[in-house]
């Protein structure tokens, strides 16, 4: 019986699943997690979270999303909505662990987390993001991965708007240099569940 119900959910659209979840149907929400869990965890990792930290934060974000599912009006995609929640949840976690204060100082060039071991090797977005400083990486991921505006990112990060804009600008310049055709490496697009 439960199996046939789960099978029924797999054929439904995200918006329909959200409607079921809004009535308290947790298996419908489970199907949404199955579809978009990797995207959310991937975003958190790209924001700089370690794998375990990203998983914990993603779980928390999905639980928050379930609690607030009635607020999802289907204006955007469920994936983008839950990614925004996840990004904010991760920032709160950083604030709680007092790791966010390190990003507050404007103009300080962060040290890249890691450099590529072989410049000639093909890289993907994840590799390119590792070339950025922590603040740049966070700001770029929030704006282009979670879909937050500069102002929203500034508010969430508790940073001045100008600081966020400059982090994004510097980050984009580095990514462009790295990802653009002939910019040092070819980009491998990777398929996923978006």
């Amino acid at each position: 019986m439960a199996g046939s119900t789960n099978l029924r959910f797999t054929s439904l659209h995200d918006v329909e699943l959200c409607s079921h979840a809004a009535t308290g149907e947790r298996r419908a929400f489970g199907e949404l997690v199955r579809r978009h869990g990797s995207a959310v965890r991937g975003l958190l990792r790209r924001m700089g979270a370690q794998a375990g930290e990203a998983d914990d934060t993603a779980q928390d974000a999905f639980l928050i999303a379930f609690e607030r599912i009635t607020e999802f009006r289907g204006e955007g995609t469920f994936a983008s909505w839950v990614k925004r929640i996840a990004a904010r949840t991760y920032l709160k976690r950083l604030q709680k662990e007092r790791k966010l204060g390190a990003f507050a100082s404007d103009g300080i060039e962060d040290e890249p987390a890691a450099g590529p071991s072989d410049a000639d090797a093909a890289i993907d977005l994840d590799g390119a993001l590792k070339m950025l400083g922590a603040a740049e990486r966070l700001c770029v991921s929030m704006c282009f991965g979670a879909g937050l505006s500069h102002a929203e990112a500034a508010e969430a990060l508790n940073l001045p708007l100008g600081t966020v804009k400059s982090h994004v600008k510097r980050g984009l310049e580095k990514l462009r240099a790295r990802l653009a055709p002939g910019g040092g490496a070819a980009v491998e697009g990777r398929r996923g569940n978006g």
Partner: peptide, 16 residues
């Protein structure tokens, strides 16, 4: 688009 193209993680089912 690159950001949206998230790879499917192998333990997606276990996570859900």
């Amino acid at each position: 688009r690159f950001f949206a193209d998230a790879p499917d993680l192998p333990d997606a089912g276990a996570f859900a």
